[in-house]
């Protein structure tokens, strides 16, 4: 089993002993030992996955890293967060996914209006199974727990990932004031209900929703 650990907060070190991980193409910064890097066409989900990713706009450039030793990954000095999955599903934007254990299955799922509002498309990437994954955020991510009695509202531009059984709604506070240029700038939110964890970054991507 590949061992993920953080070296500082911006470099991911993965200890490999003959097994493999999937990582964002070109994210390797250094390695010790023997490693081989193989580009995986179409996100590494096979032919069907490749077609789905093309159709849904969730393309990821992924490579398979296999070998013995330690491999270091980093991407544009963004902060890295480790997520340990025990059979649950992680929903993450493909642009925020850095590395996953080879034992985890990746796929795509429909997110509905949330994606449309944050400009990342209508689909998102799912990671399922047991193992570790590393996700990236602009600034140290905040992990927020959602329980049935405490639903959470998140700005679409700050959302990066979530796990657990969560229902998402899209809520909007658009009213006539938005159209006379006196909107609140917080017109769109995603509301999470149920049981699970939501990862939020302390910065906002440019979204259509951010300006109204």
């Amino acid at each position: 089993m590949a061992q993920f650990r953080l070296q500082g907060s911006k470099v991911l070190a993965v200890d490999l002993s003959g097994d493999a991980v999937k990582a964002k193409n070109g994210a390797m910064v250094a390695y010790e030992g023997e490693m081989s890097f193989k580009k995986m066409t179409g996100g590494g989900d096979g032919l069907r996955g490749m077609v789905t990713r093309r159709l849904t706009g969730e393309q990821m450039e992924v490579m398979e890293v296999k070998g013995r030793g330690t491999c270091y990954f980093a991407d544009r000095a963004t902060e890295i967060n480790l997520v340990t999955l025990r059979g649950e599903t992680l929903y993450v934007e493909s642009s925020n996914l850095l590395c996953t254990d080879a034992a985890l299955r990746t796929g795509t799922s429909f997110t509905g209006l949330r994606g449309a509002s944050q400009g990342t498309g209508l689909f998102t990437t799912t990671v399922e199974g047991s193992g570790q994954a590393a996700i990236m955020s602009d600034g140290q991510a905040v992990v927020l727990r959602v329980t049935p009695s405490t639903p959470l509202q998140v700005d679409p531009g700050a959302y990066i990932a979530h796990t657990g059984r969560l229902k998402q709604h899209f809520q909007s506070g658009v009213n006539f004031r938005t159209f006379i240029g006196e909107g609140s700038g917080e017109a769109f939110q995603i509301r999470f209900e149920g049981e699970g964890l939501v990862y939020v970054q302390p910065s906002e991507r440019n979204t259509i929703g951010g300006d109204v």
Partner: peptide, 19 residues
């Protein structure tokens, strides 16, 4: 300032000023 909220719990409304 506009657009600096990233997440919230509870019941919060946001109003543009000039209300």
């Amino acid at each position: 300032q506009k657009g600096k909220m990233i997440a919230y719990y509870g019941q919060i409304d946001f109003h543009g000023i000039g209300h």
